[in-house]
Design a protein around this nucleic acid. Structure first.
Lengths: 329, 329
DNA sequence: ACAACTGTGGCAAGGGGTTGTCAAAAGTTG
DNA sequence: CAACTTTTGACAACCCCTTGCCACAGTTGT
């Protein structure tokens, strides 16, 4: 079912198609009376400009794509929500793509969307740097939870967050922590580990690492067992999902939390406040990150690739203290 | 940055543009050798057909829109995930829209996308029947968690689910339940209430209703207080979010669950298995609902509106028994 | 050897808009 | 009232691709 075209409006209004077009896009080039008349006729006919015809000419699509590494992770919901809201606010459409933790799928989907979106928000992209750089030459790209010199990004301040975590653990008397690492291709996993290690070093605390693990509840058992093997008194899991799995395994093995070990997660997903014991976790305004990412992208899409150095939005994190951490035994 | 066009390929290959086009879309209309050659040249140039130019001609967009009434609700994530996967499998793009519980926004967004998508999946649409019917005349529509004679839909079998809930409560000795209702414009709220009432009647159980409530955790306090006022021993909340809020309020008021009252939710969101006490809730394969909805839509988009009566996919529900329900005091 | 096919590939129109160019209409000035 | 400036609107090309129609070359049949 096709709607009325600019021709229909032109005929009905008794003017040329170009006049109709200009009545919408270049009001100054059309007489006020004519313009009113055209607009009225268009309104009455229910005319809506065809976005494809427009895009064909301008290569402007009023659409942004958001690619997430794993849509299954509840943490992304907030991010997606923020992005969706920001896009809608500017009358942009948000296309959602799930990369299923695969660089291959991610790249393929991006290629497919390349000609029909104005830019990409890549959340926790698993793509190698070269691919990202190459992509950025073709369309504006904003990274989320990842950094690459030269590209704009939006993320939470995990370096400071890791410092908060270590400080918190330190104040509880912990002298030995272990990081339950995320996937090898995850930039975040690398960043968190290095930030934790640095902070631990500064505090004179020992820091070990086990993993990598796929950050899902189901992997928590494996991660917990590996972490117990290190003898650490504090477990810092790559994210809340993994942390919750760890909690479950520890309960199964009758290891008290926080009596025997303390557990910390990342993301502060909804469930972190409901599990038992409630999870101490590094939270932040994820929706704002999504919002910021789209915002940067829209600006870039309008201005073109020009402009100064790429924007880098870093939002603060805050440690949400709950019952999964306590003084060392 | 614009990619190579069919003209570039034609020139490079020394053939007419129509030949290039046919080499891709109508292989039988082109000689095998020519075709190979064209394909090779296109590949080498990195040619990708422009989807807009295509859409302009065919009104076929390889895109479906999914509109959810409230993207904040974790329950939708499964649905979105299933829909995204199914769309991707057929090389379709999924556009995500959040209606923010507003029929007005919902309609506006739909209008905006009308010319550029092949169809709509409307999840828990708040739109009045007339709007839906009118929309369905313009584009294929599949409803989720809602029914309207004449339109295809995908949903969980809540009528049977409510029966399971009542049966479960009955077997625990409950003689009086109360339904903590969802929003007035929610078809699901109406359906659940009527199914619960019928099932309760059959079991000789008294059924009350309080509400409506916005189904969020924050509303749980209000809902719990209202429900306590009825004297019922079993609370059936419109969804898990509301149920979790109820649980929190009951704990606050020192009402034992399940010692004093039993609580049941709907959806079986991830958090339902983690809260305290763990929530008995009516679960189902929500991702499969999303998958099915897109599947129906794609079939409709290909076949046109023709075909027999609209498809109606009803997936089974199952009551997940946990600790929030128990024998009546 | 000629007619009748069949398989290929080219031409050109069209899908819905935008926009540079230009002519006609309207308004201004002396 | 002529000469000139400013509005206003029409024409046509272009964005990229698809497709109906036609022409041509090569086959086959008689």
């Amino acid at each position: 079912m096709r709607g009325p075209t600019i021709y229909d409006v032109a005929t009905a209004a008794g003017v040329a198609t170009s006049t109709v077009s200009r009545a919408f896009s270049t009001p100054s080039r059309v007489g006020a009376a004519t313009r009113e008349h055209v607009l009225a006729v268009a309104e009455q006919l229910g005319y809506r400009p065809n976005p494809h015809a427009r895009a064909l000419l301008s290569d402007h699509h009023y659409t942004v794509a958001m690619v997430v590494s794993d849509i299954t992770n509840p943490h992304y919901f907030e991010l997606i929500r923020g992005a969706e809201m920001r896009a809608k606010a500017s009358e942009y459409t948000l296309v959602l793509v799930n990369a299923e933790e695969s660089a291959h799928i991610e790249l393929e989907q991006i290629q497919r969307l390349l000609p029909s979106v104005d830019g990409f928000v890549l959340a926790a992209s698993r793509l190698p740097d070269e691919n990202l750089a190459h992509l950025a030459e073709q369309r504006p790209v904003v990274l989320v939870s990842r950094e690459l010199p030269g590209l704009p990004c939006a993320l939470l301040d995990h370096v400071d967050g890791c410092r908060q975590i270590v400080q918190h653990l330190d104040s509880l008397g912990h002298r030995h922590l272990v990081y339950l690492a995320g996937p090898r291709s995850s930039w975040m996993a690398t960043t968190r580990w290095s930030a934790l290690r640095t902070a631990a070093e500064d505090a004179g605390m020992r820091a070990d690492r086990v993993g990598p693990f796929t950050p899902k509840v189901a992997q928590g058992g494996l991660a917990a067992d590996a972490a117990l093997g290190t003898g650490a008194t504090a477990f810092v899991a790559h994210n809340d999902l993994l942390a919750i799995g760890v909690l479950q395994r520890l309960q199964q093995r009758s290891v008290g939390v926080p009596a025997d070990v303390s557990v910390v997660g990342f993301d502060d997903i909804f469930a972190a406040d409901l599990c038992t014991p409630r999870l101490t976790t590094l939270g932040g305004a994820h929706a704002d990150v999504g919002r910021a990412a789209v915002e940067i992208l829209l600006k870039a899409a309008v201005r073109g690739t020009a402009g100064g150095p790429p924007v880098r939005v870093v939002l603060p994190t805050e440690l949400r203290l709950r019952e999964s951490t306590g003084p060392v035994r």
